[in-house]
Write a protein that binds this DNA or RNA. Structure first.
Lengths: 136, 136
DNA sequence: ATATACCCTATCGGACTAGTAGGATAATAA
DNA sequence: TTATTATCCTACTAGTCCGATAGGGTATAT
């Protein structure tokens, strides 16, 4: 299941990508437009900022804005920041690999082989979709 | 993340598919071979039975056995029984559709469009992989 | 100064996961 | 018939995560 955190995060990013200018947009504005709890959204935007996707400005007229061009932000990046690994199991994760306790031999493991295929097919979608694609 | 329930379930099914005969195999035997907690495995095999994938026999020489030919069991079936919907969000689920509370228009929702693509690509893998494929 | 808006930590109820416990039921073997 | 085997079923639990809320602290603009 996709967490609401990720869902809201993508919605917020898309909202920002749709803006004509790169002027800051306040949390409250995004919150109202996208029907997202303001405090929850606050924490999401903060992590997106900490991970280099957003910039922010305090005070009147402040808010969050995209740092990069939407077409340079693939969804792999967004997913990994908000949702974590794209793979369904640590033993098939590219960025967060971990061996299974119970499995003596990965190569012989049926689940392992299946999940590698699923990972690759999802990865393909996320890699080929940028924030720009989503905001059209 | 794939639950251990699903992981163990697939391992057990694969184990049964590898058997030359369709004689019953006891929970204890599968448990030892696949390093799965016996009680946990018990509940998993029971749900697989209730969902028509396994048959069972009580008493000495009893256990679980596959009902169908492994090549007639696509992984979509297994995943839906053990893990639930294949889609990452109810609003893109084929079998368990549910509308989002916050989303006024699905067609305009960026997350919706993205997750439909992910669903389709995963579905493709699960549909094209049978239990027979995994047991080779 | 004061209002605005982001920044940060802490907390919390509810749901879910991965088991465990303990016995009921059915089939087989002696 | 009785003992043994092995599935069937219900209930419980510790731990973890999710989604959200509370309550301030800090920086910026008028």
């Amino acid at each position: 299941m996709l967490s609401k955190k990720t869902k809201y995060g993508i919605k917020a990013l898309t909202y920002l990508a749709k803006q004509e200018s790169r002027n800051p947009v306040s949390i409250a504005t995004i919150s109202k437009s996208e029907n997202i709890s303001i405090k929850f959204l606050e924490s999401i935007l903060l992590t997106l900022k900490k991970n280099g996707l957003l910039g922010s400005k305090k005070g009147i007229g402040g808010g969050y804005y995209l740092i990069k061009n939407p077409k340079d932000i693939p969804m792999t990046t967004v997913m990994r920041i908000l949702e974590g690994p794209i793979a369904m199991m640590p033993c098939v994760s590219l960025n967060y690999y971990e061996k299974c306790d119970d499995c003596p031999d990965e190569v012989k493991c049926a689940v392992h082989r299946l999940m590698i295929q699923v990972r690759d097919s999802s990865l393909k979608v996320f890699r080929n979709t940028t924030l720009e694609d989503l905001s059209n």
